[in-house]
Simulated assay, not measured.
Amino acid sequence: MAVDPVAAWAGLLRTHAAVVPKLERALVPTGLPLTWYDVLLVTNAAPDRRLRMSELGRQAVVSRERVSRVVTELESAGLVERQPNPDDKRSSFAAITPEGRRRLRQAAPVYLEAVREHYLAHLTDSEVKVLARALGKVVVAEEA
């Protein structure tokens, strides 16, 4: 059987298109859009639960262009606060607030269940390992 490299790319795009809207719908009752959840998750996992805006733009799944707008929305909702960077007056940090952490913890089981139901349930453990390893290689190479 011949390998069709375009099929792997198309499969990735179609999977994203099929699964992401279902994750977004699952999160609706939590009041956290998927973009908010992503930024809160990345910020919460950072040292001191804060990241420079430029680093948040690199780590979040949200596009770098949108991350500033998402942080502004989260700030208005009281879930994130911008903090000046004392070492570099031109940059600032996005820091998750206690309310942001509470809302993230509240939404996490909903998000994880949706990922399990709409993605992981269709794969074996060995397929998950292969995908994680293969896609991780692409991320490392392209983010370098």
Rank of each mutant, 00 (worst) to 15 (best):
M1D: 09
V3Y: 14
A7G: 02
W9C: 01
A10R: 15
L13S: 13
L13C: 15
L13F: 14
R14I: 04
T15E: 15
T15I: 05
T15N: 09
H16I: 14
H16W: 13
A17T: 09
V19N: 06
V20I: 14
V20N: 00
K22W: 02
L23E: 02
E24H: 03
E24L: 01
E24V: 13
R25T: 09
A26Y: 04
A26P: 06
A26C: 06
L27H: 01
L27K: 04
V28T: 12
V28I: 05
T30Y: 07
T30A: 10
T30R: 07
G31K: 13
G31A: 13
W36V: 01
W36S: 11
D38V: 10
V42F: 02
V42P: 02
V42D: 02
V42G: 04
N44P: 00
N44A: 15
A45G: 10
A46S: 13
P47N: 03
D48R: 15
R49P: 00
R52S: 03
S54W: 00
L56F: 01
L56N: 01
G57F: 02
G57R: 02
R58K: 08
R58E: 02
Q59T: 00
A60Q: 01
A60Y: 00
V61Y: 08
V61G: 05
S63T: 15
R64A: 04
R64M: 04
E65F: 08
V67H: 06
V67C: 05
S68W: 03
S68Q: 09
R69M: 08
R69A: 15
R69V: 12
R69G: 15
V70E: 10
V71G: 04
E73G: 07
E75S: 15
V80N: 05
V80M: 12
V80F: 05
V80A: 07
E81M: 12
E81L: 14
R82S: 12
P84T: 09
N85E: 11
P86M: 10
K89L: 12
K89M: 05
R90V: 08
S92G: 05
S92N: 11
S92D: 11
F93Q: 06
I96Q: 03
G100L: 09
G100I: 07
R101C: 11
R101N: 09
R102C: 00
L104G: 08
L104N: 06
L104Y: 08
R105C: 01
R105L: 14
A107Q: 12
A107G: 12
A108E: 15
P109C: 06
P109T: 07
V110P: 11
V110R: 12
Y111G: 05
L112P: 00
E113L: 11
V115R: 13
R116D: 13
H118G: 08
H118A: 09
H118V: 04
L120Y: 10
A121W: 00
A121P: 01
H122C: 02
L123P: 03
D125T: 10
D125Q: 12
S126N: 08
E127V: 08
V130D: 11
V130Y: 02
A132W: 01
A134C: 04
L135T: 13
L135D: 02
G136Q: 07
K137Y: 05
V139E: 09
V139C: 00
V140T: 14
E142P: 00
E143C: 03
A144K: 09
A144L: 12
A144H: 09
A144N: 03
